[in-house]
Amino acid sequence: MSDFEPKILVFACNWCSYAGADMAGVSRYQMPPNCRVIRVMCSARVRPEQVISALTQGLDAVLVLGCHPGDCHYTEGNYITRRRGIMLKNLLETMGFEKSRFQVNWVSAAEGARFAQVVREFVEEIKALGPSHVSTEKDTGTHA
């Protein structure tokens, strides 16, 4: 599975993590090209349905990035994300997804290096896991 290149979706919040990604870019940190970043106004804007939908439509993993707890631009959005994330992670685990296919993490606007590190580690972890069981087990057109 060494040549497996996962497709990863990253939701980054406008106020911290997206700016962090910008910082990482400006600072010329090397990052793997597996991530597709979507900017959202707040990590709490990410609906659990969007995560589940991504995982069942062939993406290998989803990463949600927000401000550090206590630093949310909207005061409490990331606390809501955290609670939702825990419930969603448990549900996905119960249904047979590996724990690490969905992660939430915190990156502030100043942490360009941290953004690069979080993304690098995440990609390495998913590479080691291999493709998602849903995308590999997908039977096409057999349904009568």
Binding site: E49, I52, S53, L91, V134, E137, K138, D139, T142, H143
Partner: peptide, 24 residues
């Protein structure tokens, strides 16, 4: 969001979302 294709991925989406909407 959802289709009626009836493959496993679609059913996982349906049941995961249905259960999650009832969380709590």
């Amino acid at each position: 969001w959802a289709t009626n294709r009836g493959d496993l991925a679609d059913k996982i989406f349906y049941h995961a979302v249905r259960a999650y909407h009832l969380a709590g």
